[in-house]
Amino acid sequence: MSQSPEPLEGAPLIAPSTTDHPLYDGVVEACRTVYDPEIPVNIYELGLIYTIDISDQNEVRVAMSLTAPGCPVAGEMPGWVADAVLTVPGVKDVDVQLTWEPPWGMEMMSDEARLELGFM
């Protein structure tokens, strides 16, 4: 049984997004329409969307986390994100994966989210 190799020192734990893809901004805006029911800030500004990877065939893969593994909507939120992203014109398919690595932390929130929640 082989073990997966340790990440390289200094290697990012979060894979980069396909920010130069023409659909990227629309996918981000779609993610901004999804809210954690317990927090009045969208999941993109909360930093729960880790990676938006868009293929040349306009297939979107989203890696996301939740504020906590016991989040009451853990089973539903990936579907909400997929449904929102599928409304973006040109998107052919969406695959949303939950990950717990790295664990979400408050430092992942945008300045807008910190301001909205009174942390700034």
Rank of each mutant, 00 (worst) to 15 (best):
L13T: 03
P12H: 11
D111V: 00
M108K: 10
P72D: 03
N42H: 06
E59C: 10
T33Q: 07
Y50L: 08
V88P: 06
L8S: 15
L8I: 15
L46C: 02
L23F: 11
P103G: 09
E59M: 07
L48A: 01
A84C: 05
V62Y: 10
D53M: 08
V85K: 06
R61W: 12
P69E: 09
P5C: 02
L46S: 02
P102A: 13
V62R: 05
M1W: 07
V27C: 12
L48W: 03
D36A: 02
G118F: 00
S2C: 07
V94N: 07
W104A: 05
G90E: 12
M1D: 10
T33K: 06
S17R: 14
R61V: 13
E101C: 13
I14F: 08
P102M: 12
L23W: 09
M120A: 08
T18N: 06
V91W: 11
R61Y: 10
V62D: 08
P5R: 11
Y35S: 03
V91D: 14
A63Q: 14
V96I: 10
M106I: 06
L48G: 05
G105E: 13
E101P: 01
A74L: 02
P16G: 14
D53S: 13
V96L: 10
A82F: 04
A74M: 07
V60M: 11
V27Q: 11
T19K: 14
M64A: 09
G105W: 02
I54S: 07
L8H: 14
E59Q: 13
P16L: 12
V27N: 12
T87Y: 07
S2R: 10
T51W: 13
W104C: 02
E38R: 02
D36V: 00
A84R: 00
N58V: 06
V41H: 06
P102R: 11
I39K: 04
T33S: 13
L46V: 00
P16I: 11
V96H: 09
V28K: 14
E38D: 10
M64I: 04
D53G: 07
S65Q: 05
V91F: 13
A15P: 02
L48D: 05
V81M: 04
W104D: 05
W100I: 08
N42G: 06
V81R: 01
T87G: 07
N42D: 15
T18G: 05
M109Q: 01
